[in-house]
Computed example of a mutant assay.
Amino acid sequence: MSTIAEVELPANEFALCQTLDSVPDAEFEVVRLAAHGADHVMPYVRVSGTDADPMNEALEDDPSIEDAELLDDLGDELLYRMNWIDNIHVIMHVLLDEGGTIMEMYGQNNRWHLRILFPTRDTLSATHEFCTDKGLTFSIKNIYDLKQSTGRGEFGLTEDQYTALVTAVERGYFDVPRDVTMGELAAELDVSQQALSERLRRGHKTLVESALRVGDAASGDDS
C-alpha cells in the first residue's frame, strides 16, 4: 500500500546548508524536483523572506549547488533553478532506489521538512535504514496510508499543523472579526508568529488538497 511520510532533515546534512546559515530569515520551498543522472538533482526553488542580492551572493558561495539561476523576482518572492550536487544522498535514494515522489519540501533555519510518497511501507523502512547506515538523520514525524480513512493521517497534517489549526479555530482566529490575533495565538502555542503563520498556511493547503482529492474520488464512485 502506498504510504505518505512527513519527515525532517537537519540542514547541516543537506543541500543549501551554507545558504540557510548565511540567510537565516529566508524560507525555501521546492516547487519541482527531478533527478538528473545519479549525482545531482535540479530543483526549482521558491525563496521568500529575503532580497535577491544577499540570496544570489549566498548561493554563489554555497559548495553544495552550482548554476543557480534567478528566473523571476517578484519582490517578496524569488524563483530559482539550480543544480544540487552535494549532500543529497537521501533525495537520490528516495527518487532512484525506492521510486518515491517528493510531494512537498521546504526548508528554513536549521531543518528541511519533506512530504514523501513511498510506493510501499517497506520502501519507507528501507529509506530509514539507508539513512541510519550512512549516519544521516531521517526523522519521521507522521505516517499515513492512502487508504487510511480515519484520524489526522487522512488529511496528511503534521502534529504541529493539526495543533495550530485546532487552536486557531477554538480561539476564534478564523472568525469575522477575529477574537484573537496572530501574536496572541503564537504566544499561547509558544512559537514565533512566522512559524505559526507557516503552520496555518501549509496546514490549510493540505486540508484543501485533501478535500479536493476526496471530492474527486467521490465523483468517481458515483459515475
Rank of each mutant, 00 (worst) to 15 (best):
S2A: 13
S2C: 01
T3M: 05
I4Y: 07
I4V: 15
N12F: 12
F14S: 15
F14E: 04
C17R: 14
Q18K: 14
L20Q: 15
D21A: 15
V23Q: 07
P24K: 12
D25V: 04
A26R: 07
R32C: 08
R32A: 14
L33Q: 10
L33K: 05
A35I: 11
H36G: 03
A38D: 10
H40Q: 10
V41E: 02
M42H: 11
P43I: 04
V45W: 03
R46V: 14
S48L: 01
G49F: 00
M55D: 01
N56Y: 00
E57R: 14
E57D: 11
L59S: 01
D61C: 05
D61Y: 05
P63E: 10
P63K: 05
D67T: 04
L70T: 02
L71R: 13
L74P: 02
D76H: 08
D76F: 04
R81F: 13
M82D: 02
N83D: 11
W84F: 13
I85H: 05
D86C: 05
D86I: 04
M92G: 06
G99T: 08
Y106N: 06
N109W: 13
N110L: 08
R111G: 06
W112Q: 08
H113L: 05
L114R: 03
L117Q: 11
F118V: 00
T120A: 09
T120E: 13
T120M: 02
T120W: 07
T120D: 10
L124N: 04
A126Y: 03
T127F: 01
H128K: 09
H128D: 07
E129L: 06
C131V: 02
C131L: 07
T137G: 01
S139F: 10
S139M: 15
I140S: 07
K141V: 07
Y144I: 06
Y144Q: 09
Y144H: 15
S149F: 00
R152Q: 10
R152L: 15
G153H: 10
F155S: 08
F155H: 15
F155L: 11
T158M: 02
Q161P: 01
A164L: 07
A168T: 09
E170R: 12
E170H: 11
R171A: 14
R171N: 10
Y173D: 02
Y173R: 03
D175H: 11
D175N: 15
P177T: 02
G183Q: 12
G183C: 04
A186L: 00
A186C: 00
A187P: 00
A187Q: 14
E188K: 01
D190C: 03
A195H: 03
S197H: 00
E198G: 01
R199V: 01
R202T: 15
H204R: 12
E209V: 12
L212C: 10
R213F: 00
V214N: 08
D216S: 11
A217F: 02
A218D: 14
S219R: 12
G220L: 12
G220Q: 12
